[in-house]
Write a protein that binds this DNA or RNA. Sequence first.
DNA 1: CTGTTAGCGCCTTCAT
DNA 2: ATGAAGGCGCTAACAG
Lengths: 343, 343
Amino acid sequence: MSVSGVNGTGQRRPTMKEVAARAGVALKTVSRVVNEEPNVSPELTAKVQAAIKELNYTPNESARMLRRGRTGTIAVVIRDIGDPFFASLGRAVELWARSSGSVVMIGLTDEDPERERDVCLEFVARRPDALIMAPIGETQEYLAPHVDAGMAVVTIDRPAHGIEADAVLADNAGGIDQAIDHLVRQGHRRIAYLGDDERIFTARERVVAYRAAMARHRIEVDEDLVHLSEPTTEGIGITLSAVLDRPDPATALLSANNMTTAEVLRGLAGRRDRVALVSFDDLQLGDLLSPGLTAVAQSADVMARTAIQLMTERLPEPHRPGRTVRVPVKLTIRGSGEIPPPS
Amino acid sequence: MSVSGVNGTGQRRPTMKEVAARAGVALKTVSRVVNEEPNVSPELTAKVQAAIKELNYTPNESARMLRRGRTGTIAVVIRDIGDPFFASLGRAVELWARSSGSVVMIGLTDEDPERERDVCLEFVARRPDALIMAPIGETQEYLAPHVDAGMAVVTIDRPAHGIEADAVLADNAGGIDQAIDHLVRQGHRRIAYLGDDERIFTARERVVAYRAAMARHRIEVDEDLVHLSEPTTEGIGITLSAVLDRPDPATALLSANNMTTAEVLRGLAGRRDRVALVSFDDLQLGDLLSPGLTAVAQSADVMARTAIQLMTERLPEPHRPGRTVRVPVKLTIRGSGEIPPPS
DNA sequence: CTGTTAGCGCCTTCAT
DNA sequence: ATGAAGGCGCTAACAG
């Protein structure tokens, strides 16, 4: 089976030097062949390639990185790989990486600033060419020396602080506007807002936009209908009963992120209210629910591609000023948001 | 803001040598402090730490890896990061990696053997300590030299070929048995089987188990009810009409993987059959559908933790024979599988 | 406890 | 077109 020593005992991997000896050429000639540099005669090329094959030689990237200074590595730091939004980002980055001969390191923060810092420091020790991240900590100042040294930083979903970086952000305000306009158009006025912890940038932008949109429609916000917290099954259950089990219950819910939406759906499944729901962020199977989920969808792919675009532009010019790109969002109507208020 | 040169122009990163000079000590002393080796006086430690801080020194992991031979890197090669099963795997590996000071590289194959090979070769050039993969290619022989050299390979979901590796597999036969038993118990006999491409190991195991289970119940398999193909929206639509639009339609569907199930649900949403459905693999929001999805759930977490366990055991002993662990699966009853056949 | 020397595997520079 | 020497940044193996 196995071409080499049939998984024998601990063989060392052959080095370029050994290949050179085997082929009867100088080290540098092997290097030339491996790197496909010009000016090697066909004969020597053949000899070297034969030796490479016989020895099962594979170049040691650590050594190459050390010598060249560039690593061909992209670091991605996100909350969670299971979130469809970040999964799309990861997929897009991986695709680009392979097409450019790079490799992707992934680190997860779980929205914990300390973990973000740990992961990032672990990563920068590996000298990635670029870092793509969804920051959660208050400052990313600790990355400054590496930005100075040429590492390209692009953030997605949220901006960075304390460093010069590009950012790709969703049009949070526009999305909330569309959602509120839609619900008001159906006749709703008691619209509850269920959002994430205000530590998170998007959560802050969205709740501000909610208040602004309500004001625009001259609807006074009932503070008892505004709930900002981490989306746990239990917490959302309590929140739902807070906004629905009261004399003047909310007639519509605006859920401001996908994890909250999933828990809201779980919570509503155990109740018999007929309440409208619009979600900021779509769910993977949102079209299969009944009613279908009316959602403001962010295009994760567009955002990911934008981030990669910014990164490739920044790579050759690492010290240019940071740019921010806002990506539009789109309201998708499927049923849950078109439930009218009880008349 | 920025502690360092305020994102000035392209500064080189300081090296250990420069730190040593600044602190007035030898290179090796800095190395000792950085690596928290014993036998450094508190005074020198303080001096060195001060110099590190002033210069914003961070160790260069490439150099360290080259010197030490170990890289503190785990490579993960899977079909798609967006698949909840593989997302769980990625999450578990990342968690372990951070706790052990390692870093995770992720590569995606999209079930393409060539991409698998490319990605793996790119990765092994980086000399990961371990490789965790869901193989798709016929052989992973090309990894043999690196396995010989001590790289620990653990596969998940499917076994490897041509190399010595550990494997974590789901109890595919047991899961199919449970599904068929359940459907037969409801009175179904015309049970269609919708599976994935037979290139995939699990697809093969599952269809074999389907035939065996049917035989056990003395039900002759109608070959027109067995469909194996890549799960595309269009393809599944055609398949559904093939098994349902006929004089003696299937009364139950066994969908043999999560992507197929998602497309089956989409397809059924556009039809008005009342057909039972059991899925091998659960969906993230399977509990929110109506009826809820009856599914044979693999525990991605258990499988991931098992893989990590095998990996950590293999790491110090890379040449031990490969082990295979089967992880049990569990039928979760939620409604879709309890629809009786038309009487 | 501290420092010196050598070399990990490769690429860059310069010679031939 | 080919090769020899030097060094990327760090740590292992020895001195002192």
